[in-house]
Simulated assay, not measured.
Amino acid sequence: MFYHTWPKEEIDRRLENCRSKMKAAGLFGMVITDENNVTYFTGFRTHAPWTTYTRTAWYFLPVKEKPVLLLQNMMAPDAMLRTQNCEIQSYPGLYGTDLETVKNIMDSHGMGEGNIGWELGYEQRLGIPYLEYESLRGMMDKCQFVDGSDILWSLRLVKSDIEIDCIKKACDATSFALDKVFNTMHEGMKETQIVKYFFSYMMEADADKPGFALIASEKGHYDRISNIGSDRRIKKGDLVWVDGGALYNGYWADFGRSGIVGPVDQERQEYQACVHDVTMKAIKTIKPGIAASDLAGACIDALAEYGFDPSSFDCGRLGHGMGIMSTEPPSITQQDETVLREGMIINIEPGFVKENGVFNIEENVVVTKDGAKILSGAKRTLYEIKC
């Protein structure tokens, strides 16, 4: 029976690339405790990521020795079937990890001295209690704990063919769910009902699980672009904007579409056409070698041609990366100088909010050798929702 998440060749590639970068940076190894990074290097996923901090995971990645995944006893048997190219060890208790065990693993795997990388920087998190981190740092008096975030992001930013295929399948499931949920909607449905149907259609389309959903549907509240749903019932004349994404084999999709309850009026149809044109103009500028800031500038310039203020759709940026997290670096802002490379996933989402609706057609694209390929689907014009 097949239990692995990704083929061994994919895991080996990630380890080899990380070790090469560690050597170049003068690191003796890395200690990985963030759940997403543990998954990236091992393929092991828990049943409910980021919903419990009871059983912490440690992944020790030395420059030369075989990596070690240290888990609480409950998770070790499953990890033995799902992980590749690492040794599984376990610990018994629920009240923290025995740090002597951690120290012994580090000492015996060439990580007892020198610079050791940790998840300390931008958009990274420690998956262990900070007090444990500080205690271990005091115990490892021959080590210097340093930030390894640049190495981690340099690996995760550029996706392999396998990763891109997973993201495409997540996008396909999301596209199917968006098309079907807008065709299922009708006047009088609650926002929460719409979200439930959206999630169920993701599963119907072979997603591993629903990821997330946002919804805006009420005049005077269209700036609530982080609303997860309420008991409000949609009514005739409402614009309903739904944004979300499915998960497939650990990888995300993230995009949204919109519809009108009843006939689609000309003004909002034109607004929708404008934001689609803005989005496509920005996508046409995507290619290896341009900076994220250049892409942000292209979005802003295209919006300005129509006289729209990008700050009205205020999520702090005009797009972002995506992978085993629904948002990852880079951020598409005029401050981010990350250079785009072939294989990066960019979610591009210029938009604007008016009194009568949210106008945003997010697209998930992969940077190709000479441009960009759109992975997201579903209808870009406004759906007509049944009264």
Results as ranks from 00 to 15, higher is better:
223 D>N: 07
340 L>H: 02
54 T>K: 15
340 L>R: 03
23 K>F: 09
20 S>K: 13
246 A>N: 12
70 L>F: 07
309 D>L: 02
65 E>A: 10
138 G>Q: 13
28 F>R: 12
153 W>I: 03
347 N>H: 02
139 M>R: 15
77 P>G: 12
353 V>P: 00
49 P>Y: 04
218 E>Y: 03
236 K>C: 13
366 V>A: 03
148 G>D: 05
113 E>L: 09
214 L>K: 00
224 R>K: 06
96 G>R: 04
186 H>G: 01
149 S>L: 02
290 I>C: 00
104 N>A: 13
82 R>I: 05
351 G>A: 05
378 A>P: 03
270 E>F: 07
93 G>V: 10
2 F>P: 07
44 F>Q: 12
13 R>M: 09
142 K>F: 13
293 S>M: 00
112 G>T: 13
310 P>F: 14
119 E>L: 15
177 A>I: 03
211 G>Y: 11
33 T>S: 06
183 N>P: 04
364 N>H: 02
365 V>T: 04
8 K>L: 10
95 Y>C: 11
126 L>E: 15
86 C>P: 03
343 G>P: 09
172 D>L: 08
90 S>Q: 14
226 S>L: 06
201 Y>H: 03
174 T>Y: 05
340 L>I: 02
263 P>S: 15
285 T>E: 14
251 Y>P: 07
176 F>G: 01
201 Y>P: 01
362 E>L: 01
77 P>T: 13
65 E>Q: 12
13 R>D: 04
312 S>L: 04
223 D>T: 07
200 S>K: 07
48 A>E: 11
46 T>R: 08
361 I>W: 05
381 T>K: 13
11 I>L: 06
266 Q>W: 04
197 Y>F: 07
13 R>N: 11
165 D>Q: 06
